[in-house]
Nucleic acid binder design. Structure first.
Lengths: 230, 230, 230, 230
DNA sequence: AATGAATGAGTCTTCATTCAT
DNA sequence: GATGAATGAAGACTCATTCAT
């Protein structure tokens, strides 16, 4: 019965090849940069010969595109699901989203993708569009909805949502970049504990967004934008 | 009459060459990445021939080092001077520091350096050490002192200074990285106004750091770090 | 039928490549000098592309080393075997050794090696050591033993063996050098027949070494070395 | 009176320049080889700027030609004068010629010329002709006349003069080549004392050429060339 | 499907030579 | 005459890609 479903090793490996190559490529592109990574190295790390790489990906550039798409697909959907089902405070939701994101992305090899994106986006305009549509915009929208939810419920102040979303997201991205640049240089500088940093980050920012009674905080950010504070 | 004071063109150019080459290199390294930039392109953009580059810099790698050193030397010293002489509130000081930083670095070609650093730090261990000592540590210390000043004066809560410094700095760095990656892809996505973003960022974070009377915020972050919240 | 034993062309060529490249390199290094030979020329003469050379030899310098090692290894061993087994007069042994040497080295492309060595030894100190240990010293020792044999048997006079060895060897080396410098310039000067020259050379030198009865030659060379002749 | 003949320093140096450059070039070409010597090095060693070299020599190749011509002109004439005026035995004349040659050439920087010639002759056909006409042929003729003189006087055997000349000359040349190749590698192998070697060399060869009473040596070399000795 | 030997375009770097000063 | 900044042709070497096996 299960003999039918049993896949021969040969075939299993065949099907697994692209993924093994993508994993190897991700590691190397993150470690050494795209240009500095030789295609032969990718093949070697995936345990295949140079030529085999080209059976699955027509060029090194296409390999890069596949690596990025592969690792970013479905990145946002999960967050959206969490946010849609959540019933607690917005503060708690943000803490949950960030922790989840760290577990699923920041703390995995996929975190290196952001480094690649920063570096190579300029060289792949069509990929830039993909990234904006598939990652940036959905991500932005997710956090925008969460912030709006908090404002609507009276938990958070009226703020410039677009900018505030980036105040929330940017440090998370920098955490990933740091991990793969300075953080990869063993023994340099003090080490930061990501979960602890994330906690502090979310705590500080959410506090800065809470509705407060004192006059200083009552003034909406949007109104303040135009003139100087007295 | 002015023949006596006239400096021969050759001479004048010779003195200007290194700077012209450094400027060209900065632009190109930021635009295309270090590895993807051909040394001849740098020379061409500086208006000289291939070989001329090598009269001033022994190799492409040395050129990169010079570019980074050139643009980051004295970056921090200025901020320290400002902070040392400032007499207003810590909130105002942070706003001033961030604005100054944006004018001097974020809004100049030097902002691209951070992109290079993210990418190349792993490939130049000795340069990584230089960068940590000359830029990262002084920068951290500067903001640490400012936060400590705010805490000592009673303006700010007791927080984990190390982590909070990064909550302040990371979005600034991401702003630079964004500017030279996605931001450089013309017509992609909505544009963010950096000064406005910086204002929102500092405002939100500083609010999150202010001492408050309500119970919610009374629990010091430092105390919370050890155990789990109930 | 023979399909089973047939070796794929690729395979066959792969095994022959290093030797083909070494042969081509020897020819060209001798013809034009090491520095003046482009690595691409070597590859072309071996019938492969530029890059192929580097699959087998990491650099042009390593190629040179391999060329010299390849062609001189076992050079001396053969002479030592001959000398060890010989039973005739020392005169006849020297004639035999020189003729053998000419057939195996002087009259083959390997003769050009000495030209390369003269030129490049100064630029490769570690190779110089190799050459001294593997070629010069064993060669010296071989001829020293042969001369000593002649002296012990009473066939030859007491002479300074070290210097006399060079009186024997130097013209042989010059013959090779001449062949690849002046001798290579077609139509220049009269041509010397190497076997005939070798015969004359050995004949003259051996005669000069024979023990003689006449007073003129009775004064031993060794005794004369110390003081001036009257 | 002598003010007229006094040459200003400026002009004296100007006239001396070519010689200084030639000396520097000789040293460097011998040390490092022609190709490996940069024209700027030659200028620097002569104490002038790069461009100055080209005021005197149109190219590096012409400089090489000048170096060789300069150092070989008149090389032979002196020997011919000595030989023409000498009245002693041919043995003594050969000793004198070789000693003189060593003092004037072998023991001076000019000895390096032979290394250059061996290496570069193939690359300069027209120079090869010059060298043959100006150096090789007169040198050959000189030694041929000396040997003939010895034969005519009954001092030396009848030998193949052409070949015997080379038996005499080749070790002298090798001495020079050795001095600038292996001999230049400090600390490698035992060192040979040139004057002593020359003495041994001439002694052995002349002894081998002397007329002897035993039948073996009575047979003229020229006659022996055709058939085998009985 | 997989291999890896072979390729050759492309890059960094050197250096003989020129020429404005 | 002298200089040395500038040039650009040339060469060693790399590596993405191909294709015979």
């Amino acid at each position: 019965m299960n003999t039918k479903t049993a896949v021969p090793i040969r075939q299993r490996r065949k099907e697994a090849r692209p993924q093994e190559l993508l994993d190897a490529a991700l590691e190397l592109f993150v470690e050494k940069g795209f240009a500095a990574t030789r295609s032969e190295e990718v093949a070697a790390r995936a345990g295949v010969a140079k030529g085999t790489l080209y059976l699955y990906f027509p060029s090194k550039e296409d390999l890069l595109k596949a690596v990025v798409r592969e690792n970013l697909a479905g990145l946002i959907a999960e967050g959206a699901t969490i946010a849609g089902a959540f019933e607690g405070s917005t503060h708690e939701l943000l803490v949950l989203l960030m922790k989840t994101w760290w577990e699923r992305v920041g703390n995995t090899p996929a975190s290196g993708i952001f480094k690649i994106i920063i570096t190579e986006m300029g060289n792949f305009p069509d990929f830039a569009r993909f990234y904006v549509q598939e990652v940036i915009e959905p991500g932005r929208d997710l956090f925008s909805r969460v912030l709006q939810r908090g404002i609507d419920s009276g938990e958070l102040r009226q703020v410039n949502i677009f900018e505030t979303v980036h105040v929330l997201i940017f440090p998370m991205l920098m955490l990933c970049l740091h991990k793969h640049s300075l953080g990869a240089c063993a023994g340099i500088g003090p080490i930061m504990d990501p979960p602890s940093f994330i906690e502090t980050h979310v705590d500080v920012v959410v506090r800065g967004l809470l509705v407060r009674e004192d006059a200083q905080a009552a003034e909406p950010a949007a109104a303040r934008k135009g003139g100087k504070r007295g």
